[in-house]
Design a binder for these strands. Structure first.
Length: 508
RNA sequence: GCGCCUCUAGCUCAACGGCAGAGCAACGGACUCUUAAUCCGCAGGUUCCGGGUUCGAAUCCCGGGGGGCGCACCA
């Protein structure tokens, strides 16, 4: 609960305009209370939403009466007074509807509520569904009940709220003032719901795994560190749920998924928020092809359910998500882009030279696989409009993926690329315990050479593999970025309700 | 982290070295068919904060803070 502390300033501040505006609103509320009208009633029984009424009465002419009584509730968003006739706009979660109030016909309590009404107040109304003389569907108000007073004035009803800082810090205000914001988040939550439904229908079990972990694994990123007082140990916030999910497959959950909030202690940008949401799913007895099909299905389910269409505008043109998406070999695409073949079995020196030719920065500690990946990431990826499933990543940058039987320096791993960005990632899971242990040893060596992003060795995971992980397909889909694509917005902050910001400083 | 931009009334924006203004919201009034209602009237300011230059600073300079964009890191 918020206290009124910020209003308790000294006398010279009480004359500021905001204080005056709020004092007026409080005074109206208090006047109603003094007249025996509860300004904060506990309950209101609604019969219809605005959209229900709109759907039900589509073809009424002007000045119609229906004889249908409704009880509706929402926020007052506009007021157009004509003396003894007042039009109000009432907006509920389904949208707006007009209220038509003939002041002379109200009972005394309702008249007092109307008198004290401000834009932004929550109001309950009862009355008959009618149309105005101009034909606008309306509720001919019989009673008006104040449900909650907005003592703080709301943003401009026409221009809304535009300042980005305020929109992110006070998202509730953004949501109530800007319909476009609500549209974006409706897409977000419909996307998650659709994917969840598709997985559950396909016999996947939704599970929960630890966010506080002794070791942050399953991806390559810097973790947040926190402390558990009871155990007196430092813990890390998870950077990916992958390791635990595969341990559940070992335990017999053959199909699992988690909508996982991940935390990475890295920079903020248009495309990065330190906490973000990924969907990870694991399916026993499947391989990389299974993962690609599953990714295709889930993204399509989201697009269909959240948007009802499959073509979306991006910075670089429209993309059509209609399946099947092309499957392309990473090395084939790279050879086309570079005009010569490259392969992680080539000498480091030769690959580093190719990197320099294309202005890709090179670190001496990098092996050939990392260099090939860098060429992909910096030279090829930005040019791919997609959707395309790029397959065959170097084993050196894929410590948890199964290597290819016919080429042990590559893995059966894919990424989904759209508009030059990665949206999903998946592979045939590495399930040979000795090989996983060897991969971890390689990572530890990298760490000892000074690589801050090496994957930590996870002996509990290796032990788990020793009990037997069936052949398994695993995928991860970046939910925030997918929603950016589906909602056609450019900033990750526009698809996260409360993005990370510097803490608000108290204004002196 | 570096560079560029930005911060003025509750909200949206003007004024860009010379009296801080408008629209919406508010307040007082008129109005029984509006829907960005209209009309008349009235009120509302720590120009993000702190310093400096100047006869004079919202405006120019320095420092600080918040935010945005780009680059870097990453998904």
């Amino acid at each position: 609960m918020t206290t009124g502390a910020e209003q308790s300033g000294s006398d010279d501040r009480s004359t500021r305009p905001l204080d005056a505006l709020m004092a007026e609103r409080r005074a109206k509320r208090d006047a109603l209370a003094a007249a025996g009208i509860d300004p904060y009633p506990a309950r209101f029984d609604r019969t219809d939403l605005a959209s229900d009424v709109r759907r039900r009465f589509t073809d009424l002419g002007p000045d119609a009466r229906t004889g249908v009584e409704v009880a509706m509730a929402g926020r007052i968003t506009a007021r157009r007074g004509h003396g003894k006739l007042v039009f109000l706009s009432l907006s509920d979660r389904s949208g707006p509807i007009q209220l038509l109030v003939q002041v002379g016909e109200l009972d005394a309590r309702s008249a007092a509520v109307l008198e004290a009404c401000d834009l932004g107040d929550w109001m309950g109304v009862t009355g008959e569904v009618v149309t105005s003389r101009r034909g606008e569907l309306s509720v001919g108000v019989r009673t008006l009940v104040l449900l909650s007073k907005a003592v703080r004035p709301l943003p401009d009803k026409w221009h809304g709220l535009s300042e980005a800082d305020t929109r992110y810090r006070q998202r509730e205000l953004d949501l109530l003032a800007n319909p476009e914001t609500r549209r974006i988040f409706d897409i977000r939550f419909a996307t998650i719901a659709a994917m969840r439904r598709a997985l559950v229908d396909d016999h996947f079990v939704e599970v929960e795994t630890p966010i506080l972990q002794a070791q942050a694994g399953g991806a390559i990123a810097r973790p947040f560190v926190t402390h558990a007082n009871a155990l007196d140990v430092d813990l890390r916030l998870r950077i990916a749920p992958e390791i635990y999910l595969k341990r559940l497959v070992v335990g017999g959950y053959e199909r699992v998924f988690e909508v996982a909030r991940n935390f990475r202690n890295e920079g903020l940008s248009t495309r990065h928020n330190p906490e973000f949401t990924a969907l990870e799913a694991y399916q026993a007895f499947g391989d990389v092809a299974t993962g690609m099909e599953l990714t295709e299905r889930l993204v399509l389910a989201a697009a269909d359910a959240a948007c009802g269409r499959r073509t979306f505008a991006t910075r670089n043109g429209d993309v059509d998500l209609t399946p099947p998406w092309p499957r392309r070999e990473l090395l084939d695409l790279l050879a086309e882009a570079l005009g010569r073949p490259v392969h992680p079995s080539q000498p480091v020196g030769a690959l580093a030279a190719v990197c320099r030719e294309h202005d890709v920065e090179v670190d001496d500690a990098w092996g050939p696989g990392k260099l090939v990946f860098e060429l992909y990431d910096k030279v090829l990826l930005p040019t791919l409009l997609g959707p395309v499933l790029v397959c065959g990543f170097p084993v050196e940058v894929s410590p948890l993926a199964r290597h290819r039987p016919d080429d042990p320096v590559l893995t059966d791993r894919f990424e989904l690329v759209v508009d030059g960005r990665e949206y999903a990632n998946g592979y045939s899971e590495l399930n040979i315990p000795e090989e996983q242990a060897e991969r971890f040893r390689f990572e530890v060596e990298a760490a000892e050479r000074g690589d801050p992003e090496a994957h930590p060795a996870d002996l509990a995971f290796v032990r788990s593999l020793e009990y037997g992980l069936p052949p398994t397909a695993g995928i991860g889909i970046g939910i925030d970025r997918l929603v950016m694509l589906l909602a056609e917005v450019d900033a990750i902050r526009d698809v996260i309700l409360f993005p990370m910001l510097r803490p608000e400083v108290a204004q002196g």
